[in-house]
Write a protein that binds this DNA or RNA. Structure first.
Length: 824
RNA sequence: GGGGCGAUGGCGGAAUGGUAGACGCAGGAGACUUAAAAUCUCCCGGCUGAAAGGCUGUGAGGGUUCGACUCCCUCUCGCCCCA
């Protein structure tokens, strides 16, 4: 028997948290006889507080990890901090506090909160990306990329956020051309920068054969971002100052080359200057200046009226030999393809609009077989569908699909172009002109140029007490002790690269370090890698679909090719949680005033209630509103579990069973099945509903004789075990109070027998023409014949049938019988 | 503009093509209490009916089917991605 006490989470929760810590029950051993399971959640940025989103994300994630542990896996569930980044630096500027101090004190606070959550974190594996022990290896990885030619420096127009005072990768610029971090408009700025050659992995990144279970949506988003298009690069001829020159264009429709009635250069194209005639110069220069002030998004908008200027120059179509006027227009982007296009107004909508605006000839070169010849000047839009070639010299009559290949063959034969696959994916710009990040380990020597810092000199320490000036350059540039160094090759005076790395580099490999977090010789040992990676289950927000998740895949593929790891995909299974919203159904934000801090509810109800509530809001991938009043329901539920066990647990149950025993045993098996299946599929809300039903059913019987039986007592035990992943503290307390010596979290997950999940009887529904008319209790093994007899002879059913004619009777075993009748 | 996801009581949500609304919140009635809170019992989509029951009902409109929240088509609204 258990002494009856009131459920007090304040007493129960800290007690077990300390006990678990002391017993180290959540540390994943590297030498376990059990199968390993790597359960990973995206690590937090140390903003200082765990907010509602973290709780919403981590609670179900942890329940899943606990479920796997009870199922017999050696679960590794690490946590760490994505600790470099702008907020710390901004705090440093604003409040004169050291970025490092600010970050570490935030981490301390968040550690406390993470512990209070009662999740099974393996603290021995914690990684903090701003610590030299970590960023040393971030720098080491950069050097490996550099050695492979996968890291390079170039001067080119880059995305620049004037508010963050730094460059951004393409992935960090939102569709409306704003900074994904601060929302300011992003401009273009010519600047020296380091890039990683992610584009050379474009094809490999399109291949998802090695992932086990990723949301289709995320795969599609990555594929769209990579943006593969097949076509050809065709070189148009130009005569510049008496010289024969060639200007390449990229096209996905080489079959339409005879329809190219104009040629367009992007305003920034290096050829613009050369090809423009003196008469057109003023107009062209004005247009270029205007285009520069616009964002790519504005330029690409299909709503915007087409604009452009004739350069006065001409190029020669290398296939048709036609002389073609050269225009510049802002709808052609320097960053895509060759920065130049052949304008085929008849078969490309944007070219069509452009030709209309400037009265350029529209020549039809593709015609569907059922189409009559028509005058293209009467068309209202371009005809982008495939058909047969017309007005195309030797290619007339060829189906367009086939013509694509034939035209490409032809240009390759003639040496005027090549087959080409173009990708939208650009190289990853990783230089940040900011302080709080891992320094790029490069030295510039007047003698030896760009020299990588030797590996044995890592880390390149990030200095403290730096001066912040809003110059748009890295603060490190003004730190003489940092910048001034010696050349690793000749020992002469040299300067260090002052930019730091994009923090997405840090997060591209943190999950590798968790497997071997304290290794000071190498970033990870091959054995540990083999043992733990790839990650079995990864949980995190869909906002990283084409940021972190693409970068991490790139890292893994590159490291695989370098021979540092043996696998090709970092995350086997991926799950995106939904977003937790305010009570008004809107995104939580200070400006809306609907932000709720979890801490006060943890204080009031305890961790277990808050955890369970997070899972009960709705489907994990759907997100939902946090409504404080709904916590009451979970609180009552846990209290009912508490009093049920407290009042009903007995050490030595009767061996005598009662008539209700069988029903309880069946419900127990049904509930095990239900909760197990739901947890497997991340359906935490319905799993909890099943546990509530189980609890309610047991409460109904708790004062009946069956409560003394071994069957009932076993059901109580199962209830605790099934609830343990959701509410780890209360279940541990009740488990140990009911005479178990070991932790409930190391107990074995209950198993069910399929046979016992089936009821002996069921409610047979009798329908007439699909409408429910009667319900009767029948035995589970009832025959179809009996069902027909029972249904047709049922008085209520008969009164509905009346004189109607029975057409057929459909029986769905275990469910219902539908009698189809036609009125007489 | 293209593609994807979604819309179910007052609210959050549940339903392998087979009893719509499980589970919970809020609400109502009652029990206990000097009283309140907590707890317990019952009710709770709409219309109708004394009740049994009947009719109706899953954003709107069509379709397939013995049977549609579920599948198909069209539309409206909301969110996301690519333009």
């Amino acid at each position: 028997m258990i002494t009856r006490t009131k459920y007090d989470p304040k007493e129960v929760e800290p007690k077990w948290q300390s006990q678990w810590d002391a017993d180290q029950i959540y540390h994943a051993s590297d030498n376990s006889s059990k199968p390993n399971f790597y359960n990973l959640v995206m690590f937090p940025y140390p903003s200082g507080d765990l907010h509602m989103g973290h709780w919403y994300n981590y609670s179900p994630f942890d329940a899943y990890g606990r479920f796997k542990r009870m199922q017999g896996y050696n679960v590794m569930q690490p946590i760490g901090f994505d600790a470099f980044g702008l907020p710390a630096e901004n705090a440093a500027i604003k409040r004169g506090i050291q970025a490092r101090t600010w970050t570490l004190s935030n981490i301390d606070n968040m550690r406390k909160q993470l512990r209070a959550m009662g999740a099974q974190w393996d603290w021995q594996r914690e990684v903090v990306t701003c610590q030299p022990e970590y960023y040393k290896w971030t720098q080491w990885l950069f050097l490996q990329f550099y050695k492979q030619g996968l890291a390079y420096r170039t001067k080119a127009p880059a995305n620049w956020c004037s508010s963050c005072n730094t460059t951004l990768a393409n992935e960090q610029v939102l569709a409306d051309n704003t900074c994904e971090r601060c929302g300011s408009v992003v401009i273009r700025k010519e600047i020296d920068q380091w890039l990683l050659k992610i584009s050379s992995y474009a094809e490999r990144l399109l291949d998802f054969a090695e992932v086990e279970d990723w949301p289709e949506k995320t795969i599609t988003m990555q594929r769209n971002w990579i943006g593969r298009s097949e076509g050809a690069e065709i070189r148009f001829k130009a005569e510049i100052a008496g010289q024969q020159e060639e200007i390449p264009v990229f096209t996905t429709r080489p079959d339409t080359i005879y329809g190219a009635t104009f040629f367009v250069l992007a305003p920034e194209h290096p050829w613009v200057e050369k090809i423009t005639t003196p008469e057109q110069q003023a107009e062209v220069e004005a247009y270029v200046g205007q285009a520069r002030r616009m964002t790519e998004i504005e330029r690409m908008s299909s709503e915007k009226e087409k604009s452009g200027v004739f350069t006065g120059g001409y190029v020669t179509n290398p296939v048709s030999g036609e002389k073609t006027p050269v225009w510049i227009a802002d709808y052609v982007l320097m960053s895509y393809g060759a920065g130049a296009i052949m304008g085929v107004p008849a078969h490309d909508q944007r070219d069509f609009e452009f030709a209309r605006k400037f009265s350029i000839t529209i020549r039809e070169v593709i015609r569907a077989s059922d189409e009559e010849p028509s005058d293209p000047t009467t068309w209202t839009e371009a005809r982008e569908a495939l058909g047969e070639l017309v007005n195309s010299g030797p290619f007339n009559g060829t189906p367009a699909a086939e013509a694509k290949a034939r035209v490409i063959d032809y240009i390759e034969e003639k040496g005027i172009g090549t087959r080409k696959i173009n990708y939208r994916l650009r190289d990853w710009l990783i230089s940040r002109q900011r302080y709080w990040g891992a320094p790029i380990p490069i030295v510039y020597c007047p003698e030896h140029g760009t020299v990588p810092v030797p590996e044995d000199q890592l880390p390149v320490w990030l200095p403290e007490n730096v001066q912040f000036k809003a110059t748009g350059e890295s603060p490190l540039r003004y730190e003489p002790d940092f910048v001034n160094t010696t050349c690793p090759v000749c020992g002469g005076p040299a300067t260090r690269e002052a930019d730091t790395m994009d923090t997405f580099i840090d997060s591209s490999w943190y999950y590798l370090r968790y497997a071997d977090p304290h290794n000071s010789e190498v970033p990870w040992s091959p054995e540990k890698m083999q043992q733990w990676l790839p990650v079995n289950q990864y949980v995190g927000g869909i906002e990283h679909a084409i940021l972190h998740l693409l970068y991490a895949r790139f890292f893994i593929k590159a490291l695989h090719d370098m021979g540092h790891i043996t696998f090709d995909e970092p995350f086997k299974r991926l799950f995106h949680q939904g977003m937790v919203l305010g009570a008004d159904g809107q995104k939580m934000s200070k400006s809306r005033g609907n932000v709720e801090a979890p801490d006060k509810y943890v204080e009031k109800y305890g961790t277990d209630t808050v955890r369970c509530y997070m899972m009960f809001i709705g489907p994990f991938d759907a997100g939902g509103s946090f409504r404080a009043e709904n916590l009451e329901g979970i609180w009552r539920f846990l209290n009912r579990v508490w009093s049920l066990i407290g009042e009903s647990w007995i050490d030595h149950p009767n061996t005598v069973e009662t008539k209700d025993s069988q029903a309880i045993e069946r419900l127990r098996h049904k509930t095990i099945k239900r909760v197990t299946e739901d947890l497997k599929h991340f359906h935490f809300n319905t799993a909890l509903a099943g546990l509530m039903e189980f609890n309610n059913a047991l409460i109904k019987q708790q004062h009946n004789p069956v409560a003394q039986s071994a069957t009932y007592q076993k059901a109580l035990q199962t209830l605790l075990q099934l609830l343990a992943p959701f509410a780890p503290h209360i279940t541990e307390e009740l488990w140990q109070q009911s005479n178990h010596k070991n932790s409930i979290h190391t107990s074995e997950w209950p198993v069910y027998e399929e046979e016992l999940t089936k009821d002996e009887a069921f409610t047979l529904v009798i329908q007439l023409n699909g409408k429910v008319r009667e319900r009767i209790e029948v035995a589970a093994d009832i025959s179809e014949e009996e069902v027909r007899t029972l249904a047709l002879n049922n008085p209520r059913v008969q009164s509905f049938i009346g004189t109607a004619k029975i057409l057929k009777v459909i029986y769905v075993p275990g469910k219902l019988v539908n009698i189809v009748v036609r009125p007489a």
